[in-house]
């Protein structure tokens, strides 16, 4: 997961794309260190000290980790839990094309 995400972020760094995490580790200091160690450079909301029972994952009714949402440039949810790496990249590419098309209008 993380190695693929890292390469995805690198590959798409000049595109209208952002990988945003919602992290559910309860120990923030340990989390910050681990993010450094693993090269997690993208931004994450922190779900708070209650970990997986924190406010964001509770509102989003997340019971399985990782859970993925793909949101287009207009803020519309377009897909969920596309975990296959090839399918994920194809989906993101398509959404980026849409975003660029609207940006040049």
């Amino acid at each position: 997961m993380i190695p693929h995400e890292r390469s995805l972020v690198e590959k798409l760094k000049n595109e209208p794309f952002a990988l945003i995490g919602v992290n559910s580790d309860s120990d923030k200091d340990k989390l910050v260190q681990q993010m450094k160690d693993e090269g997690v450079t993208w931004r994450s909301f922190w779900n708070g000290p209650k970990g997986t029972s924190g406010p964001i994952s509770t509102t989003w009714n997340v019971h399985g980790w990782p859970t993925l949402y793909f949101i287009d440039h207009k803020g519309v949810i377009r897909a969920r839990d596309v975990r296959d790496e090839a399918a994920m990249e194809k989906l993101i590419d398509e959404l980026i094309v849409e975003a660029k098309k609207d940006a040049t209008k």
Binding site: P16, I20, P66, T67, F70, I96
Partner: peptide
Amino acid sequence: VVMLDFWG
């Protein structure tokens, strides 16, 4: 485009 990832 945002990929929102609930992770830990």
